[in-house]
Amino acid sequence: MTSGIRFDGVTVTYGSNTVLDSLDLTVEPGEAMALLGPSGSGKTTALRAVAGFVRPASGRVLIGDRDVTALPPYKRGIGMVVQQYALFPHLKVEANVAFGLKAQKVPKGEIPGRVAEALEMTGMAAYAQRHPRELSGGQQQRVAIARALAIRPRVLLLDEPLSALDAQLRSGMLAELARLHRELPDVSILYVTHDQVEALTLADRIAVMDRARLQDCGTPQDLYRRPRTEFTASFVGNANLLPVTVGAGGVSFEGVSLDVPVSEALPGAGATLCVRPHLVGLGPGPNALSGRIAEVQWRGSTHRLYVEVGGHRVKADVRELRETPPLGAEVTLHFAPDDAVLLSAGVGND
């Protein structure tokens, strides 16, 4: 049986503080949805509303067709993995994984098989007799995932599961999670993170959150290539956001007229042009902008240039340069018309 998650106008308040503002979002059965946003954006609150640890002030949370808004956490049939693992320190790995099965009174004979299955799936079968304190952070997180999977949840909630791990371990675990998602096509996953790489790698769709609100939602490619708000554009991929004017003669930035696709009728005044730094090239070309080098950062295979163009800093990631241009040098940047997206100013910034 598969079932998705539905947020139906969910609002959560702490006192006079609204931490989640009428969230409408549907996670399809079997889908992996990432909730991406900075801290305080309401993403963790949304997850905890599904788990049942926060009670919405209004709205409904549905798992499958069932309204679970008023159900206590232990009746919701969810698996949850949190940043600090939360393994029970007094129980061995095996007992940790068996915990949910025993609590739900799964027949005794079935438990060892299902514990072994879950540990096998996360590659922790060899550690069944250890205590959590004898495991590394990555191993503890695997056990936590095995524990959540053992109860065969319809919905898996992952709350920043990789944040406590170091960078190398994180990329390994990310691949593991992607594999689990492929192997468990029936489990809907809600994945909270502030890390865009995790979201882009793992999620079928990403919901971008900021200041208690859903800002944007779409597939990773969609959000990256065609962001609909300035917030999405800068939070996912750290795009250049250039204030431009849209007039009868086309789009212009700092007096330079640009050749970019104008899809909708935009008002005469302001708009924002979004260009990814790695799509900005050095040297003459279409949409040429000239300015002075303000800062150069060497990043191994690339150079990040900050170029001062008429009071605005434009970021450009270019292939490693033989010679680092001196600060203050006059340079020209360019970008292809198709690589720019025009956003009407103020969207998502209300």
């Binding site: 956490p73 915990f99 949910g100």
Partner: peptide, 20 residues
């Protein structure tokens, strides 16, 4: 978080009290 982890695994409050 221990209590919550137990609850998310389907343990009722009395079970959480005794076992966690």
């Amino acid at each position: 978080m221990y209590e919550q982890a137990a609850a998310s695994l389907g343990a009722r409050p009395s079970y959480v009290l005794l076992r966690v």
